[in-house]
């Protein structure tokens, strides 16, 4: 059975594409057959995070406009051979894809993949409608910041009106700030949005480092964010994984962080 998940947020830059890439790699490395669809037409990035930017020939726009079959546009990952990317166009804009066309495509792909993950653009316009229409359920990504949480709630209202089930990922948590009482924690955000939370991802330099390389952080064993993403992968697969308390850096770790490299 195929599962179609849209990764969305409302506010931009909170970590949708990062979450999509990590979830995709994590599921694929568990042996699932996965396709990631980038719907951020005009501002594509998923290809970069996966290290696939140089292998794109056709795009989602070519597929929905019936110039090629989706199979011709898929880019297969070299290392995770059951992970595929359906990239979007970098020159077209969001109006190039109608929600109905996207729905038809997703339905057609269901028979071939265990998971179809859709990376949604920021905002609540046509790009959002296109990304969400074919999804069985949604992951809403937010940051522990007042504006990101508010925008998340706006999207949650829209998703609920469309009868989509929603799970929450809180990204870029800074444990020290939470401890100092200067940042919202997962429990508070849970209380505000009343959704099931499937991940709390710490703010981690390794995320940027791994984006530079095009290798998602979920594979690095020594990254706190990587560990959080592995837990999210497990929860998406239906495992009951307890949340670990976030680790605040000790004095020595921080010293090492500052001076060591």
């Amino acid at each position: 059975m195929s599962e179609v998940i849209v990764i969305t947020s409302g506010k931009g830059g909170v970590g949708k594409t990062t979450t999509t890439a990590n979830l995709g790699v994590g599921l694929a490395s568990r042996g699932k057959k996965v396709v990631l669809i980038d719907t951020d037409t005009g501002l594509r990035n998923l290809d970069l995070l996966l290290g696939l930017e140089r292998r794109i020939v056709y795009t989602l726009v070519d597929v929905v406009q019936k110039r090629v079959n989706y199979g011709q546009a898929l880019v297969r990952h070299k290392k995770y051979t059951n992970l595929f990317l359906l990239p979007t166009s970098q020159v077209a804009d969001k109006t190039a894809i109608e929600p109905a066309q996207m729905l038809e495509l997703v339905e057609a792909m269901k028979s071939e993949f265990d998971y179809i993950l859709i990376d949604c653009p920021a905002g609540i316009e046509q790009g959002y409608e296109t990304a969400v229409i074919g999804a069985d359920w949604a992951i809403v990504v937010t940051n522990p910041e007042i504006s990101a949480v508010r925008d998340a709630d706006k999207i949650i209202g829209k998703l609920q009106a469309a009868n989509k089930k929603i799970k929450l990922v809180v990204n870029r948590i800074r444990p020290q700030m939470v401890k100092d009482g200067t940042m919202l924690d997962m429990t508070a955000i849970d209380d505000i949005l009343s959704l099931e939370c499937i991940g709390q991802v710490p703010d981690d330099d390794k995320v940027v480092d791994s984006a530079n390389r095009g290798v998602p952080v979920v594979e690095s064993k020594d990254s706190a964010a990587g560990e959080a993403y592995r837990d999210i992968v497990g929860r998406v697969c239906g495992e009951d994984i307890p949340f670990k308390p976030l680790e605040v850096e000790t004095f020595w770790q921080r010293l090492k962080h500052v001076f060591g490299r």
């Binding site: 007042i146 508010r150 009482g181 200067t182 924690d185």
Partner: peptide
């Protein structure tokens, strides 16, 4: 704390 304020204001 500011996180408590954020919590209340958001609710």
């Amino acid at each position: 704390s500011s996180s408590e304020q954020a919590h209340k204001r958001l609710k």
